[in-house]
Nucleic acid binder design. Structure first.
Lengths: 196, 196
DNA sequence: CTATTTATCTAGCAATGCTAGATATTCTTT
DNA sequence: AAAGAATATCTAGCATTGCTAGATAAATAG
């Protein structure tokens, strides 16, 4: 009798519908519009059901963030494939920015909103680690301290994305900034004395 | 009779007390603890009085942010003074990170929380522009496209600060990341062909 | 068929941002 | 100084939020 299995599947499907609804509303109207009541309406169950799936609202945001990390990782790998060296770097940088700018709500869930997700330490979820490694892969050819340079590359991309998104730096200069970041990585592994 | 003037001063003083209370609570307990009711208690007036000073809660956060910009600007200028060239860059970078990391609530008000403050466009408040120019001053010796490089420098610092603060990159590698950012700026203006 | 566990819902709490309408205070004018 | 006008402030409340206790319905087990 597979009824227990079916129940488990149903439950998983419902959980996925919650996450999908949260994400859809957030993308369309922002995270403030994602209320527990509205999610309950959306999945056609009452509020407390959501709390049998997630500890609290933040845990729902975190679930969306995990989806985001998977997709970001995929997008970065895709961008890296088919090119090498400096071009790969540039393509990855462009893909990162495109991801952050076209899916602001998703990016917020991943990097801005409070979550309990852990990073850069033991117990980091694999979805999160994989994204970092996709960046490290294109950075590695240019340096020996891969972790340091990857973190700095990532931070630069994150900073450019968030400051541009909030209107703090000029959208018109995006390409120049990307070129500067890419060049910084390319140069980082080369000789210390430069240009004479 | 300077009673109108005194009233104006009293009002300004009360407004300042609101902002100071908001900032103090935020620094101590986070922005979630900064409720309008609690601010009203703190200044010993009723809630609606706050709305005669500020349009809404976000406007109070914005007022704290403006204070933050003044202080960040001062900190960056201070850090730049007394050194030149690469050392000035490094000192400014260190000062920026120190600012962001020891005043997380203030930094959030300035860069993370939603505000109506405008940047990088006509109508930008002078407090905000001054901070940018303090960065530009130490970047200028190293490049010709000062605006582009300054924005990228700022973005890198912002990214490093926020990712480190949220535990997404290793605190232990802070100095390495700063060194990389500084070197990237130093190198940015030099010859395009590097290291042979 | 009954008892027990599991799934779900109704109803409500306490807190939030914000505001309408009432009241107290201060100023202006005679 | 008194009456009327304008200003300052408060009380009380709305609508919404995240979350939960306690009641009920459904599924399972004996």
């Amino acid at each position: 009798m597979g009824t227990a299995e079916r129940k488990g599947r149903d439950r998983a499907a419902r959980e996925h519908r919650i996450v999908a609804a949260a994400r859809a509303i957030a993308e369309r109207e922002g995270w403030d519009a994602v209320t527990v009541r509205r999610l309950a309406d959306e999945i056609e169950y009452s509020q407390p059901v959501l709390y049998s799936h997630f500890k609290n609202r933040d845990a729902i945001v975190a679930a969306v963030a995990v989806e985001g990390f998977k997709e970001l990782t995929a997008a970065l790998r895709e961008a890296a494939s088919g090119s090498t060296g400096r071009n790969a770097l540039k393509n990855v940088a462009l893909a990162y920015l495109a991801f952050a700018l076209d899916r602001p709500a998703l990016y917020d869930a991943m990097f801005v909103l409070p979550t309990d997700l852990r990073f850069a330490e033991a117990g980091t979820r694999p979805e999160l680690r994989a994204g970092f490694e996709a960046l490290a892969a294109v950075v590695a050819p240019f340096c020996v301290e891969v972790a340091d340079v990857t973190e700095t590359f990532w931070a630069a991309l994150h900073g450019v994305a968030t400051l541009e998104r909030s209107g703090r730096i000029r959208p018109s200069a995006r390409n120049e900034r990307i070129a500067l970041v890419v060049r910084a990585i390319v140069v980082s592994g080369k000789s210390r004395r430069v240009g004479g």
